[in-house]
Simulated assay, not measured.
Amino acid sequence: MSSEKRIPLPFKIIPLEDEVQQKIAKDFAGYPNGLVSCNHWGFKFSATVTEQEVEDMYNHPLDPRDVWVVTPPKCGTTWTQEMVWLIANDLDYEGAKTPFIPDRWSFVDFPGLSDKEYMKRFTSNPSEKDGATGGPPNLAGDPNRPPPRFVKSHLPFSLSNPRLLDVCKVVYVARNPKDACVSYYHHMRLIRVHDFLGDIELFTEYFMKDELGESPFIEHMIEAWNLRHHPNLCFLFYEDMKKDLRSQIRKVAKFFGKDYSEEQVDNLAEHLHIDNFKKNPFVNFESLNKLGLTYPDRGSFVRKGKTGDWKNHFTPEMNEKFDKWMEEKLKGTDLTFVQELEKQD
């Protein structure tokens, strides 16, 4: 653990308006207390997060040997974690076969993700069903494991340790907001600690109002985009990974000072191909099913992994509204998103 002096959190934690909280509690069974806002553009946590927990996130220990993957939710996070871990660990495929991905990666913002009151129902009645030992697994991982530590975070840079980019290598992934929205919708219906009860149209309204846990997405990505030239930041787009994964593998390998042969790159691309990734038990959080933390009939943790799936969910009216919203959000920036691909893996 770092002995450096702790930095006071520069933001207040502010509950949302009562009317909004009541609506969230009605539409998300997993958030009976609603959400809180924290930072200058309103990043959202569960309302049960404490100032101490957010300050701990802000002061997460750093070591030059540590590696971070930072993304908004549902932007290829787990996919990127697997790629980065293997590249940084000399393609140690056997070492990647841990029973549970948090055995290799700690998850900084996990304490602010779910409602503590709601989570009690998953910890008070341990179940032996399907080999479960009772209670949710430690999704946060161990932040105090010895370096090099591999750290996953959905926190924006403004809520991360201010020294992060000066100390650690960070891989950031952005994704077009339409597909991110659709993926988050399915995720929040699948995972019972969120338990969204509405349809895609209602969820899209929440997305555009930035009234979801760990939103807003676009401000998150703009903040990272403006830091993309920092030598310790490797900025990727999900769509580039879908279009030409091998070139992105080479880009990340170069970032970590690794030089892999064409055959090694091909093997890693094959390992990461969505058809194989969906079948990989070491990245699919299968233990969540065993513990009753998911609705198995609503899909799997790794879903389609496609660019352009939003077209299967958005009506023309929804799309028009979303486009106008995005245009307003991106005004004054040169950040743009690819929403469709002619060919993808």
Rank of each mutant, 00 (worst) to 15 (best):
E4C: 11
I7C: 01
I7V: 08
F11K: 15
F11L: 10
V20M: 08
Q21V: 03
F28M: 01
P32Q: 15
G34N: 00
L35F: 05
N39S: 11
H40P: 04
G42I: 12
F45A: 06
F45R: 02
F45C: 05
S46H: 01
A47I: 09
E51Q: 15
E51S: 08
Q52M: 14
V54Y: 11
M57W: 01
H60M: 02
P64L: 06
W68F: 08
V69W: 13
C75T: 14
V84C: 09
A88W: 13
E94N: 04
G95R: 11
I101Y: 07
R104K: 12
P111T: 00
G112F: 09
K116T: 14
K116F: 12
E117A: 15
R121W: 03
P126N: 06
K129R: 04
G134W: 15
G135E: 11
G135W: 15
N138R: 02
P143C: 12
P147T: 11
P148M: 07
F150G: 04
V151C: 01
F157L: 01
L164F: 10
L165M: 03
L165Y: 14
C168P: 09
N176G: 05
C181T: 00
S183A: 12
Y184P: 04
M188S: 03
R192E: 04
D195P: 03
D195A: 05
D195N: 13
I200W: 11
I200C: 08
I200A: 09
F203T: 08
T204E: 08
T204M: 02
T204R: 06
K209P: 11
G213L: 06
E219C: 13
M221N: 10
A224L: 10
L227E: 07
L227R: 05
H230V: 13
L233H: 10
L233I: 12
F235D: 05
F235W: 07
F235T: 14
Y238H: 00
R250D: 04
F256K: 13
E263F: 13
E263T: 13
V265T: 09
V265S: 12
A269E: 02
H273D: 02
N276E: 07
F282R: 04
N284K: 13
N289F: 08
P296Q: 10
R298H: 09
F301C: 03
G305H: 12
K306W: 05
K306T: 02
T307K: 00
D309I: 14
F314S: 01
M318S: 01
K321P: 06
W325A: 03
M326C: 10
E327H: 15
K329F: 10
T333R: 14
D334I: 11
L335W: 15
E340K: 12
L341G: 03
Q344I: 10
D345C: 06
D345R: 14
